[in-house]
Design a protein around this nucleic acid. Sequence first.
RNA 1: GGCCCCGUCGUCUAGCGGCCCAGGACGCCGCCCUCUCAAGGCGGUAGCGCCGGUUCAAAUCCGGUCGGGGCUACCA
Length: 506
Amino acid sequence: MTEHPAGGHAGAADGHPGRVRVRFAPSPSGDLHVGNIRTALYDWAFARHTGGTFVLRIEDTDQTRVTPEYIDSALDTLRWLGLDWDEGPGVGGTYGPYLQSERLGRYAEWAQRFLETGHAYYCYCTQEELAERRAAARASGGPSGYDGHCRDLTAEQVAAYQAEGRKPAVRFRMPSGSTTFSDLVLGEVTVDNAHVPDFVLVRADGSPLYTLAVAVDDVLMKITHVVRGQDLLSSTPRQIAVYRAMGVAEDEFPAFAHLPYVLGKDGQRLSKRNGVVSVNWYRHEGFLPEAICNYLALLGWSPGENRESFTLAEMAAEFDLARVSKNPAQFDAAKLEAINGDKIRALDRGDFATRITPFLQRAGLVADPVSEEEARLIEAGAPLIQERISRLTEAVGMLGFLFTGEADFAVDPGDAAKVLTPDAAPVLKAAEAALADVTPWKWEAIKEALHLALVEGLGLKPRQAFAPVRVAVTGRRVSPPLYESIELLGRERTLARLARALSASA
RNA sequence: GGCCCCGUCGUCUAGCGGCCCAGGACGCCGCCCUCUCAAGGCGGUAGCGCCGGUUCAAAUCCGGUCGGGGCUACCA
């Protein structure tokens, strides 16, 4: 595997002569979900693979749903994942601004031109009237889109509506015929325009809609490839119609690639109800960005040859839209977690220690910034748990015993009830005696002493012998390896905990 | 209802006419290792939706059918 994220196949994918320009254009009305990120990842990988430009544009024309907080959060999430953009919020670029809310004038201008050229018309229908006619059309079995009511209003009709005080929306006049485009993932797609109703470009309040803004911006920003979710497939004929109305030459149209859906656990569309979909949630839960990217990459794309593990750079080097699946994929959190465990184990020791530190801090186990002693314990404890956890948050439970003072230390009640029974008293007593004068205080010597006292001395099976000691010292039945844990804890604290457990179990 | 897209193990996928009585991964089950839990090793479970057609030969091509999803908004 080569390490060249940028491949230099500029424009090769489908005959576009110029440099590739791909955009990711989210409309952040909440946390970015795994489906959004999968799209962003493919957009990014395609741009990097072709040596093109990755443009980030925020589609915030619906300001009731998209807030500045969500936008900031989206940018933060993308940065965290390592999906860097070449043009967009924060980095600028020659085709900005990159927030649609700052480009309103351009949309208004084009809407006005469409009105003048007859590509668009004013529609005075009210929402109630539309809903009523839609229901009627559907009941009679016909297409349920806009019926063209205001397409060819007479001057008198317009005057009458205006006299009523109606505020018109601007509607696009969809031409007859059909629209065919070659989708880089799906192949050739043809749609009869009769099934594409005249759509609204500008709301009655003057604000532009997606259908107008997306087409205008893709043209103005010189986008060559529109790689997006399949939910937008049916809007493609409309988008193409707007290009034509704008006077864009056919061979200047961007190429389209519609990615298959990412579905929830139940095979239904992603939502809060069928599994956790917020990428920020996974981040908070201790998932690595490299694991999220690797897993999401696999949802609809595969490098072939049974390879499943790769870095972002490797993905960029190999990514190819032709290998993108047409099938929808179900999001499987269990596999994500398995990959997360792999990525955690692949981290080098120092990196792993660095990554778990914020989680220990958040749990209040260590200070921020960490003290010298805490840093020493983290560094020494990290290797003990690195291959035992699949989420960084698990470090809290595994290493908590090291960072808890003797006054606050408490054994898990459930584990205590199961293990620290009266039967355990002799074991704890023997362990206490054996550890009292072990030298040196190293895990090898500790191991030897405990074996001598418990396995040979008391004739216990290792399993039975070490369970009470483990619970007494670490507070849980599941812990890092015992001898190493004891060494790290130190003689004084270990003996104190054994004594305390002894008095509790007696 | 109309239109569009899709259909290989439970899930993600490899496969693009013979290499496939279908390979990998996650999950699940068993065994080994073992101070717990993991990790690791070994083995197992399970699939080409269905019906026709083309072909010497089909998971791979074609048609139909059934099933799933999406769109049908003054959301994106």
